[in-house]
Design a protein around this nucleic acid. Structure first.
Lengths: 200, 200
DNA sequence: GTCTATAGGGTGATAGAC
DNA sequence: GTCTATCACCCTATAGAC
């Protein structure tokens, strides 16, 4: 009886410990770079020895996977908080760009894990990857409600998001040199996509 | 006499060996990620044992430094090859954007080393960093000749460069999904900066 | 569930023989 | 200049005692 399904309370404690481990993992990854995460030190941060981590995660890759999935849940939360006003595409995009730059700058390690191949030999599991695709598709829907449907226009916009964020992170961490261009970028972009003219 | 200044021929052989080592380093960094470079394996690639590398470079950081400087020399070569036509800002920017995306995609390792903090614990030496700043300033001059002088406009443009390149690398490596937006991005940008209107 | 001990690798760097 | 040998670490992961 006691060895079959775990009691809810036991399972909840387990999930809480997992959450503590992930929290410590983010802290260390922020300090040492996402690729510099060490299981020994991670264990130490939560008052364990390294082998005990394997009670909570199957491998280091599984920890990265959980962090990756968590990152996309957090990004979804940002997107959800954003009020989408179809009558004000520029303002909506401006706030969205700012929010994305803020999201990226809030955690370099998270940015590295989610958007760059910074961990040699690791890539997200199919499930984790599926979560990221689903997140991307929700963004597509949101932009469609702003009237942005041309795939080329959509890719151009993701370039702007990515460009402002990566420049901000790489060349003015802690500042707002590129973040403050969000309004101007949104105006430039919306003017472009609402002009009927076609590119060559 | 023989222990004072090295003869030119000796020095030339030494520089050639250094170049061979760097060439092998790029090959391995491409395969394993820039952060995954190992001195033992690097030595093996050029027919040495690891300690012999220290005859040519003071440390692993010095190797990264040399690679970093080499990357900026190569980027300068790309910029120099680009014919700058002040009468055709759109066309010039289009070719420049394509060239930059090509440059980044030609070597992921080089991109990681030059533009991201992908090597935990390493940052360029003051000299190497100065070379990168000089390269950046030559770009500023080039754009000034196209009539782009407003610092905000310049930053917006570096965001476009960075955005197209990073999206191309991260989400369509080997393809041209973002590279082919260079023309459209250049048109959008030039239209924006040549309109007299000010951003809010 | 957590521990110690350890397997079985890896790393950058240095000393000193040749 | 190159080597062998080695220092002094690092790592992920597993076995098995408690």
């Amino acid at each position: 009886m006691s060895t079959s399904t775990p009691t809810p309370v036991r399972e909840r404690r387990r999930q809480q410990t997992r959450a503590e481990i992930l929290e410590a993992a983010w802290r260390l990854a922020e300090r040492d770079g996402i690729a510099g995460l060490s299981l020994r030190e991670l264990a130490g941060e939560v008052g364990m020895r390294a082998p005990s981590l394997y009670t909570y995660f199957d491998s280091k890759a599984a920890i990265y996977d959980a962090m990756f999935a968590q990152g996309y849940r957090e990004l979804d939360a940002v997107d959800t908080d954003l009020e989408l006003d179809p009558g004000d595409a520029v303002g909506t995009l401006e706030r969205s760009l700012e929010a994305f730059v803020d999201f990226c700058c809030a955690s370099v390690a998270r940015f590295q894990l989610m958007f760059t191949a910074a961990v040699p030999g690791w890539e997200p599991s199919p499930e984790a990857y599926a979560a990221s695709v689903a997140s991307y598709e929700r963004s597509v829907e949101g932009l469609a409600r702003l009237g942005i449907e041309d795939p080329r226009h959509f890719d151009l916009l993701t370039g702007l998001y990515s460009g402002l964020a990566s420049q901000q992170l790489a060349n003015d961490p802690g500042g707002d040199r590129w973040r403050r261009l969000s309004r101007e970028a949104a105006e430039m972009y919306v003017t472009h996509v609402t002009q009927g003219r076609r590119g060559a």
